[in-house]
């Protein structure tokens, strides 16, 4: 049953339509073994629909899709047996304790009781929930629930782990704790597919990513490649007093200017030099900031919108 191609996941013209709504409008992608692959895009870009098709819980309505060398529409159960899934919203079993959640979930995969027992202990350790192993799920904090959901998805030693918005809604400390756990998995050779609308998460976790917007892939590459390709090295952010922002005044000072409601973004190779030029023109911004380009800028360039509205 082994994988016939190099890719763990391969899609050609993959599409999903709900009634009159096209959630995914024909995308091509390849996920290679051992890499961390990301879908970056705002809410409603089609990331979750794509993930659900890869997870074999939502049939595609067009195009080709191969997961672990098999066809989801024919081999769904066999593929799901080798996947780990962390859905956008935790769907832990609230009628069971932490340990029972892992145990029962392992049994769904047909694993032996002895194996599941040992594995559950190991994963509780991994999720840093050892002191809460007999607690009811409802009493856990948001970060703990998320870690348990990730631990649960590892019960069958998956070859491919799907994470849909893994850190949305968590506080900064909980996010870093979670990223640390995901790094360890990556080091152990688990292939990760992550969706996110946080550019910092995409930069932290992903070796390679695609930018999605309105059901389409608009760019593909490593974070550094994407930035080099679609943005300048530096960005100068200028804030002006209310009502005095005027993009005409900075014309010619940068390769490209983006106008946001509260500030101007000047794309340039040398931010300090551009700032000096701004001052020479007699402009007096309330504040200014020179920074490196990020994926947020790539997204703005490609779609004309910010990631988080």
């Amino acid at each position: 049953m082994g994988t016939s191609t190099e890719s763990l996941v391969s899609a050609r013209g993959l599409a999903k339509r709900f009634g009159d709504f096209d959630a995914v409008r024909g995308i091509d992608l390849d996920v290679r073994p051992g890499e961390a692959f990301g879908f970056l895009g705002p809410n409603g870009a089609g990331k979750s629909s794509t993930m659900r098709m890869i997870a074999c819980v939502s049939p595609r309505t067009g195009g080709e899709l191969t997961v672990l060398g098999m066809d989801p529409s024919r081999d769904g159960p066999a593929i799901r047996g080798r996947l780990g899934v962390v859905p956008q919203q935790d769907n832990l079993d609230t009628e069971l304790t932490v340990r029972e959640n892992l145990h029962v979930y392992g049994r769904y995969f047909g694993l032996s009781k002895a194996h599941v027992r040992a594995k559950a202990t190991e994963l509780i350790e991994f999720a840093q929930l050892a002191d809460r192993s007999d607690a009811e799920v409802e009493t856990l904090s948001g970060g703990m629930k998320r870690r348990l959901t990730i631990a649960r998805s590892l019960i069958n030693d998956p070859e491919l782990l799907l994470l849909d918005e893994p850190t949305t809604g968590l506080d900064p400390q909980a996010r870093h704790l979670l990223w640390d756990r995901l790094f360890r998995l990556k080091q152990q050779g688990v292939t990760l597919i992550v969706t996110t609308h946080y550019m910092d998460e995409a930069e932290q976790l992903c070796d390679r990513l695609v930018v999605m917007d309105a059901g389409r892939i608009v760019a593909e590459g490593s974070p550094a490649e994407l930035i080099a390709q679609h943005s300048t090295r530096e960005v100068l952010e200028l804030r002006f007093a209310a009502g005095t922002q005027d993009e005409q005044a900075v014309e010619g000072l940068a390769e490209r200017v983006e106008v946001l409601p509260d500030r101007l973004l000047l794309y340039t190779t040398d931010g300090e030099a551009s700032l000096a030029a701004v001052h020479r023109r007699g402009l007096t911004p309330v504040s200014s900031l020179v920074r490196r380009s990020t994926l947020e800028d790539v997204f703005l360039r490609l779609t004309g919108r910010t990631l988080v509205d």
Binding site: A55, V57, A78, R80, G81, L83, L92, Y108
Partner: peptide, 8 residues
């Protein structure tokens, strides 16, 4: 939902 993400 959780059950159907497994082979079940």
């Amino acid at each position: 939902d959780a059950m159907l993400a497994t082979p079940l």
